[in-house]
Design a protein around this nucleic acid. Sequence first.
DNA 1: GTATCGATTAGC
DNA 2: CTAATCGATACA
Length: 207
Amino acid sequence: MRALPRRFYARPSRVVARALLGRLLVRGRGRRRLSGRIVEVEAYDGARDPASHAFRGETARNRTMFGPPGHAYIYVSYGVHHCLNVVTGTPGTAAAVLIRALEPVAGIAAMRRRRGLGDRERLARGPGCVTRALGLTVAHDGLDLTSGPLWIADGPPRRGGRRIARSPRIGISRAVARPWRFFLAGHPCVSGPRTAGRGVPTRRTGR
DNA sequence: GTATCGATTAGC
DNA sequence: CTAATCGATACA
């Protein structure tokens, strides 16, 4: 399978987000290949989206998002974890899709080693777990997904017979009502709610 | 300059 | 429930 062409990414983040579900995210080539089916994503919409890192303009951290589509935007979350996004839209739009969860397909033993976990369904469940399982860090920020050792496979997205469900995005405090989280309904590797829920997620108490 | 908050997770 | 830990942001 080939890497998805750049034109795939040169569309609005919500369109790309849905189109990514069921596709294969691949790290490396040959025997050392790691891969997983994308089962959960979130769309972010640059300057038009208060929840986006790009909402307040370009910084050293989010520079990649302002570049051409089809590149990996990887940032440090909570000072501890790394999160993988794909840049979408036209250059300067600074839109992106966060990869929140994978169903591990290849290199599962290596993922188990990296994660110190046996449960396949939990290996890449959650954005920080995705990068941990694949061995991605901010050192990989800016990688070109159409040519590099990190890519997304072309071909019909196999959804395993599951429908695409949507919900509000997880872990944000602004623009909380926008239903821009997309996932394969009921898939065991999805983090958080696995069925479509209307309305704003329940706010955790304490702050 | 200091204080606070995250596109989170693992562990009590 | 909290700690971890750092870039970005808010404010004196």
